[in-house]
Design a protein around this nucleic acid. Structure first.
Lengths: 329, 329
DNA sequence: CTGTTAGCGCTTTCAT
DNA sequence: ATGAAAGCGCTAACAG
């Protein structure tokens, strides 16, 4: 059932049918009604692909993340999806696993499908700006990056000030009397590096030395945290506080400490990052940095929409994180 | 840059270009190379919309869930996305919030976009089968439902045996000597009802009476669990174990118990459902039912793909959950 | 206010 | 092996 069938049955031309389909004016109420009746009768569904071919848009955008199962990405993607959905867009979700090759595949695929825009979530995508493989795509479609920065002449990004975020945690700990702190870094994204930098800077402000040696590298997740804990426990001088770049790492850390009989925060304080549900679920509840996932998602949408409609309001913005104090400090 | 431009520059017809684009045989190596050179030169990107219009498929499927932020949905959607992605499909993600109206909107939108298929995740969608509004869509496109059942003549579903799942938890508790158990039900989905039924049946098997009074209704999430905890604590006779339909509820419950000085599992045992990360993050770690999210996701993909390609292998299948015993029992 | 017509960029017979 | 031509289902001038 297509527009021709409808037109024929209603005894009008396809243009008129198209007009009522698109709620245009210039249609007599009588004609409109007549056509609408046929439309209803057959429960006609317009073909968005055909429409898309001529209007050059299928009203769809895409979200690229590392892994939508991680709460931070899930929340961000959710917020973006809901916002775009309200504006009539469908959103394609892509889990790149942080792999360049996979990211390229997705970008090619999205370019072919002529998506109206894409939002990259996470600093893993920073390097994409320098990738010649996706250069064409990047130039030909609106792209915004949330929580990252494309290394590209004029790119659009929503950034969270992670240096400040970690600084907030360190300052808080310092106020509680801690000076001997350690930072646990898990992933190897740009964002992780920036957080580490934030730690070092904040410590320098406290005039503590040898901060580079105060950084511990570990793997992702609960296991990474537990591994870090066991390594911290054998340190010649045990720190009184540890700052983490991820909530999950912090939870693993606390589990590791508590398992050996230590008390958090009495014996050792711990802070996380992201203000995920994890921080509320663990025991003790985790002091963490709220990096405003929803807010950056919403701004990304706003930015991308302005890019799509051609009237770009701003090109980048920086969001201030906030400290959420709970029981672990 | 379109297929005509390429054809002209290469000095061939568009059909030949189309042939090399689609890796067809019947093209002289020489011609193929010549065309490929032009393709590369301009980094030509074929227009999938135009292609879609003629082949009647854009190789995209959709996932409808209640809320992708919930770990169970996130995991399921992730697994589905990855599997389809490997097969060249893009996947659209939809968060319906469990609302019928929103679900309809999504279904209409997807039908217009001519998606190749949709997978419904969750028993909230059961009633969709009876909705005349989406009747057309349901009849005209391949749909499979994971963890639910469409009330429709011949519908396709992957089901988890939740009656068995809860039964596993109850039996385990019984073996540990518990008889005075309570079930905490949070949501009001069909799946939640089935789990409750599973509890009652399992208790009857233990010859415990008045099981309907052993069911407590509460709200979703951590708060729901904490609320349930406080209500259980004031019961005239405190149960020795409580079975939950969701991990998050169980975590809230444990937090509530522990806050008042009780010990889990010494004073009271708790079980969850889903085997989500939550069950590993909380303290004590939660005994829970693994309802095999990944497996049902994978089977859904398999089923939907067979539907899309027209050769349906099976119409429904039931998956057996497993108990994961941890510290809370 | 309504109809005619020319595309949108591709795939696919059908000839050659 | 290659090309010509007819569509896929719709929108958007342009006429009338």
């Amino acid at each position: 059932m297509n527009i021709y069938d409808i037109a024929e049955e209603a005894g009008v031309s396809i243009s008129t049918v198209s007009r009522v389909l698109n709620n245009k004016t210039n249609v007599t109420p009588a004609t409109r009604e007549k056509i609408q009746a046929v439309l209803d009768k057959y429960q006609y569904t317009p073909n968005a692909i055909a429409r898309g071919l001529v209007v050059k848009s299928m009203k769809t955008v895409a979200i690229l993340t590392v892994d939508m199962r991680a709460p931070y990405y899930a929340r961000t993607a959710y917020t973006i999806e809901r916002a775009f959905s309200r504006h009539g867009y469908n959103v394609i979700i892509c889990n790149t696993g942080g792999e360049l090759e996979e990211t390229r595949r997705y970008m090619h695929s999205l370019a072919q499908r002529q998506v109206d825009g894409v939002v990259l979530v996470g600093s893993v995508f920073n390097k994409l700006g320098k990738d010649t493989e996706v250069e064409t795509e990047l130039k030909h479609m609106p792209v915004v990056i949330a929580n990252g920065e494309l290394m590209l002449p004029n790119s659009y990004s929503i950034l969270v000030d992670d240096v400040l975020g970690i600084g907030l945690a360190v300052e808080h700990l310092a106020r509680k009397g801690h000076r001997d702190m350690v930072y646990v870094k898990d992933l190897d994204t740009n964002s992780a590096k920036i957080k580490m930098k934030g730690f070092i800077q904040a410590m320098e402000k406290l005039e503590v030395r040898d901060n580079k040696e105060r950084v511990l590298h570990t793997g992702y997740g609960l296991e990474g945290g537990q591994d870090a804990a066991s390594r911290i426990l054998v340190l010649s001088k045990r720190p009184t506080a540890v700052v983490c770049g991820e909530d999950l790492t912090a939870v693993g850390l606390m589990k590791g400490f508590i398992r050996t009989g230590l008390s958090v925060p009495r014996d050792i304080a711990v802070t996380g990052y992201n203000n995920s549900e994890y921080s509320l679920i663990c025991t003790p509840e985790l002091t963490t940095v709220d990096n405003k996932g929803e807010m950056s998602a919403l701004f990304s949408v706003q930015l991308l929409e302005s890019l799509i409609s051609g009237k770009n309001a701003f090109s980048s913005m920086s969001i201030q994180p906030e400290l959420v104090i709970r029981q672990s400090t």
